[in-house]
Design a protein around this nucleic acid. Sequence first.
RNA 1: GCCGGAGUGGCGGAAUGGCAGACGCGAUGGACUCAAAAUCCAUUAUCCGAAAGGGUGUGUGGGUUCGACUCCCUCCUCCGGCACCA
Length: 967
Amino acid sequence: MPGYNPASIEKKWQAFWLQNKTYATSTSTAQPKFYALDMFPYPSGQGLHVGHPEGYTATDILARYKRAKGFNVLHPMGWDAYGLPAEQYAIKNNVHPRETTAKNIHHFRRQLQSLGFSYDWDREVDTTDPTYYKWTQWIFLKLYDTWFDEHQQKGRPISELIAEFESGKRPLPAMGNRQSAIGNDWSSLSPTDQRQILANFRLAYEAEVPVNWCPGLGTVLANEEVIDGKSEVGGFPVERKPMRQWMLRITAYAERLIGGLQNLDWSDSLKDMQRNWIGKSEGAEVTFEIAHLQSPLTVFTTRPDTLYGATYMVIAPEHPLVLTLTTADQREKVEAYRKWAASRSDRERQEDTRKTGEFTGTYAINPVNQNQIPIFISDYVLMGYGTGAIMAVPAHDDRDHEFATKFKLPILQVVAPLDGSRVDVQQEAFTDEGLAINSPWIENLPTQDAKKKITALLEEKSLGKKTINYKIRDWLFSRQRYWGEPFPIIHLQDGTSVRLADDQLPLTLPELADFKPTGTIDPPLSKADDWVNIHVLIEDRAGASLARVVPASTPGAQPARRELNTMPQWAGSCWYYLRYTDPHNTHAFVDPQIEKYWLGSLAPNGGGVDLYVGGVEHAVLHLLYARFWHKVLHDWSLVSSDEPFRKLVNQGLILGEMEFTIIEDTTTGQHLSALDLPAEIERAMDDDNPRYKLVKLDDTQVEKKGEHFVLKSDHSLRVDARSFKMSKSRGNVVNPDDVIRDYGADSLRLFEMFMGPLEQVKPWSTAGVEGVYRFLQRVWRNLFDENDNPKITDAAPDDATRRALHKLIKRVTDDIERMSFNTAIAGMMEFNNFLGKSAPTAGSGGAPNLIAREVALTFVRLLEPYAPHFAEEVHARLTQSSTLSPQSSISALPWPNYDPALLIDVTLDLPVQINGKLRSRISVPHDSDDSTIFATTLADPEIQKQLAGKEPKKKIYIKGRMVNLVV
RNA sequence: GCCGGAGUGGCGGAAUGGCAGACGCGAUGGACUCAAAAUCCAUUAUCCGAAAGGGUGUGUGGGUUCGACUCCCUCCUCCGGCACCA
């Protein structure tokens, strides 16, 4: 069958590309480089959905374009293959997660290859491969061996900290109540004590922390993985519970993680999401003495200027001083409140924010005026933020106002509006900035100045200090799961832990027949007895301990146990972009020279990945975690840039096809609008045998009336017209395999790029896929006759065609550079329509003109990044290569250049406006001077009619664009 | 509530200070066909008008400008994120 037939050509070219390694990245570092990175997928059992090809096509277009521009392009793909779903599936179906993972990877790889992406498949990485996770463990140990020097704002080797302790340059920190026993001589400490001290500094440390324990999954979850008190995966309830966990000290890097955002080419919204997550707020800590008590209480506030308005104080129920502060007669009530607050889940707390609390019976002394103010406990104050205690200023804080009103506490105004207006703070808190009043130290100062002055005074009198707080908490880094990277950590009998020696990596995951959760807090790895119980020799490395696993019979060997937790799924994705640059290195996670070439600051654009595209769902977590690891590696001079991802784009979600729906009452056959459904109907639809059902309508049954869609047959019935997120339950999921089967990969790629701007949310449209499919058909028919013989001539193209072609080159090139793919495709469609007019297809009447070979080849060269199989096939047919070689691929052709002289039209067709309204148009030679243009304009009959003899007050000519006359 | 983004035909969208609606979908009419599909041609913001032509029009109201979808201010709506973070 002649004509464009994607099914037959796509397979052929995919095989050709793989066989010839057409898209292999060069190991030479002579050329300029371009690193186009996709967020690697979790290979789920569902396979690809249409959202994947969206971002992947965008980077593929850039990769293909940059190759044609002479760049050495790194465009890799891999698998983020550890993770809960594989383990859940494995437990349910009793297969090893390794098997399902391998199967899923195979499926994903086949699907991606069927889309024609130009990945270098020799650089594939798999986070579950021991040759990969060896280095994940190695980097973890780097974090373990790092402490954060606040002064230098930099991670430094733990050995340098030891050296500072040894030399006495840094005093030994206190160790709880053993302070006096420790002394101040590092080398006289026992190894156990030394290890305990160091553990307080390491970026990777163990801590007993209240965690989100999810009994349903048998694991703890990060805060980020808990949504509304339920697990993000599976939706199981989550409870708070203190457990020993591995933590990463990401909080130490908070300031640098904020600062680093500034120079990144990321969207503002994405940067804001990261900033909000880190949650920096500047304020002051203020110390309040407690009446009749020795120990003072410190609060954090961002409004120190309202200190005179503090009429009471609140501490969190879990605050360690609660019991000390509570008087005997209040004890019973306070205890009861504490118990009640502890039993409340996060969810309940979020849903019910009405203020509750209890008076402790004790008073604090306001340091600026010596007023005694009552101390309450309440769960609206969180232990995890600031100091877990606040000064309450009900006149100027909504939450304090609500509490004060309920507990009948005094409300004292200390800030007045700037405009002199009156506010009634008894009724409502005034939270804006203004002028300080009733505040002797700062009377009449505007808020900003008042903050500065009172903070300075507090510091002077040792009553407080300027403080910065962050919302971000340390990263909970361990999971009670089987399917993850084991920690290269050994627990000794003295209760301390020690890292494994580098040369004993990778620490491979033990084979377990039964990897189900134990049902207790013990992780599944506790079942691997032989693996867990080992003997080690402890070595001393620059003062730090290191464990080496040895046979039990080895002299000096001591019994020990391995860490039973595994790392979270984020671990492997924190550094995969580095591994792609040097994926087979067995000596290092990446070779320094290679890293420098691909990510170094010597690169023209300042280092990091040149383009990173992925879903917005990773806006905070993955991107924050990866940036954190990258900065630690940078502090070790192991990577040459401070930021990993210079330019980042989030592709918009693809929604399901637009749906028109109404509701049918099945008993009466009556139709109802599906908009604003009464609650009882909505409920009834969930019944097993629903009285009401949703009726989907064809778009021919519907029309627009005013603001709304209505039924054509009944204008009074409003139709619900909406696109929904694709979901199995809605039945609106589009499978890319089906689209490829029906229209081919090129049409899928083209359509996803043509739908609209990459970053935008947009609905799927099957008719739209057909539209781009027809476009490719038309291109084919313009170039080949009904027997697939080329309608091509070697004669030079006519002037108009040449000009149109050069305009197209410029347009497509500029549009790719700014990632405006939809408009580039529109340009190619226009050009093809132009070709169709000059070379009418057979059957349409006109005598078929032949298209110049040069024009056809340049056109498909521009089309290749979007529709590579199609372009290869056309190129091969037009060049009539009988044997296919790597050089015969269209990708061996350079990107065309345009001749700027050809972009200028010989005659200008200028619109003429009078007072900004279009009235006429004139034609002038493109090089006419202003006076010629105005003369032509005034001579124009239409303009003369409009002016009716009036002389324009002002004549404006915008070069090459338009003329405007002001009368 | 706070932060960010967006409002343009029946639909997806184009135009980032200079001809609003490119391109595509859908729709309508026509050609080809015994017929259908496919393909091709034409029309397609809206109002007035037979037409020529003219008026209006980018969520709302105002402003800046010779000129505003585009910049500034007000309000409204939708989407995304955060949310008792002191």
